[in-house]
Measured scan of single mutants.
Amino acid sequence: EPLWIRPDAPSRCTWQLGRPASESPHHHTAPAKSPKILPDILKKIGDTPMVRINKIGKKFGLKCELLAKCEFFNAGGSVKDRISLRMIEDAERDGTLKPGDTIIEPTSGNTGIGLALAAAVRGYRCIIVMPEKMSSEKVDVLRALGAEIVRTPTNARFDSPESHVGVAWRLKNEIPNSHILDQYRNASNPLAHYDTTADEILQQCDGKLDMLVASVGTGGTITGIARKLKEKCPGCRIIGVDPEGSILAEPEELNQTEQTTYEVEGIGYDFIPTVLDRTVVDKWFKSNDEEAFTFARMLIAQEGLLCGGSAGSTVAVAVKAAQELQEGQRCVVILPDSVRNYMTKFLSDRWMLQKGFLKEEDLTEKKPWWWHLRVQELGLSAPLTVLPTITCGHTIEILREKGFDQAPVVDEAGVILGMVTLGNMLSSLLAGKVQPSDQVGKVIYKQFKQIRLTDTLGRLSHILEMDHFALVVHEQIQYHSTGKSSQRQMVFGVVTAIDLLNFVAAQERDQK
């Protein structure tokens, strides 16, 4: 057995438009009618409502009807409940999964919650491996369901041993009777949507819809739904939504950006999952974080739909894509998950301010006199920076000697690579993860907040409520011999709460 199987392995699926269902090699399930009293909570997966979006479509000038398939009504709160249950049931049916076995899954959280929910009911041990950027709410729900959680670096490539995929496979090879159901490759993922989600949409719309818009992560949702719609409703256009920084969209030119990270969760990847059939997507749109969270908040405030950030991405694209539809036509959007997962993220004004998705003037509360002053007023001194090749031991000596707790790590040209902190280095040394002679590049981390000289002290204040420091950066445009230009970030300084307090105190003292 291989040590790991690539999540982007070539698909062996034989589905073709027009091929009889009787030739399918898979076990198919028909939607079942729910009894009045459910035998367990797993029976509350599927049969989610279709809700008309009344205000947002009109606000953006849509002539067509805009409908939302509300997947956050599933038992675990997301569309991923469907595939989690289906993968477990299919693994039980073919004898792969037996009582007492362990389920391991690399996930952005929602599939993990679905699997942990099913594992709690069915009696399996469950280990979820997820990147650090995923919300604390997801972690809390997983723990409450009895799952064990392993976190991995957000910026690790999918084929790196440190990625959530790599760590999951390492655990599988170490733990007896453990299984990775593997949402990236498992046919049960798109089949769950082909058999149930798509049929529900067709039934709820009486077979009449002209466009379907869905955000894409593993691709199982859009693949399964689109294949069924292509068979039953061939005139329906399928629109895929991919965040900026991901590479799922086609044509490839759409993916060209210097951005590699994004805040919206559960969609987009740096590889093409095996289950994603991009041939059934008629057109791709890219979405960005700001519009995703703005539209998610709009869905909550104006439509009462308590959905997550990827739902915002989907609707932001839908109001663009559906401009081509006329009166009497219908566009369906998939709202994948609930706001429950993001209470401390985009639902929080403070978080939105820190990330730059909300401006101070958007909030009406009274601010102190210094709130709208610029960061450049602080008069920061030149920063202490270190090269990635310097040793951890030497870096600790320098920081202690100069009285700093942290320093930016830059390359020879001064471009920011990340940050090192005294606390992080000492804990890594004590844990045996690094040696004093190791290069400081081994303990770089990139989960820090950046701020510009033109940003306000109010925004800085919000950042420092949650973080010990902020890195002050400025952009530099560099022209190359080819005539092309590129933008790079340079370090201007490091600012802490002490710097802000000293500035405010000094100004008030001078005024007296």
Rank of each mutant, 00 (worst) to 15 (best):
V332M: 13
E360D: 15
R509S: 11
F404A: 05
K366F: 07
F469Y: 14
H394L: 04
I463H: 07
G328Q: 08
H474Q: 12
Q489M: 09
E324L: 06
W369Q: 05
W371T: 12
Q406W: 04
P273G: 06
T454S: 04
A318Q: 01
S246I: 00
D277W: 00
Q511K: 12
M466C: 13
S486K: 13
V504C: 09
I398A: 13
L457I: 14
L501P: 01
A382V: 15
M419A: 15
L387M: 14
M298C: 09
A407H: 03
L501Y: 13
G418T: 09
L430W: 09
I451S: 03
A322M: 01
T421W: 03
D362M: 09
L426A: 10
T274Y: 00
K320S: 15
D467V: 08
S481F: 15
I498N: 07
T261W: 09
Q302E: 06
I239W: 04
V473E: 14
F346L: 14
G418F: 07
T314N: 06
T260P: 04
V420Y: 15
L460D: 02
E324H: 12
S428L: 13
E475A: 06
L387A: 11
D282M: 05
V315Q: 08
F469R: 06
W370T: 06
Q406V: 01
S348E: 14
G493I: 13
L363E: 03
E303S: 08
R297M: 02
E412G: 13
R340A: 01
L471E: 05
R350I: 07
N255R: 06
I398W: 07
R400I: 10
I444A: 13
R400K: 13
E303I: 01
T274H: 04
V280W: 10
F404V: 08
E250P: 10
A413V: 15
R400M: 08
L399R: 03
K345M: 05
Q354E: 11
Q487F: 14
K355L: 15
V241Y: 05
L457A: 04
D362R: 12
L358G: 07
V443L: 09
L254N: 12
K512D: 10
E250D: 15
L500C: 14
T344G: 13
Q376D: 10
K366P: 10
I272E: 06
M419V: 15
A296L: 02
T391R: 02
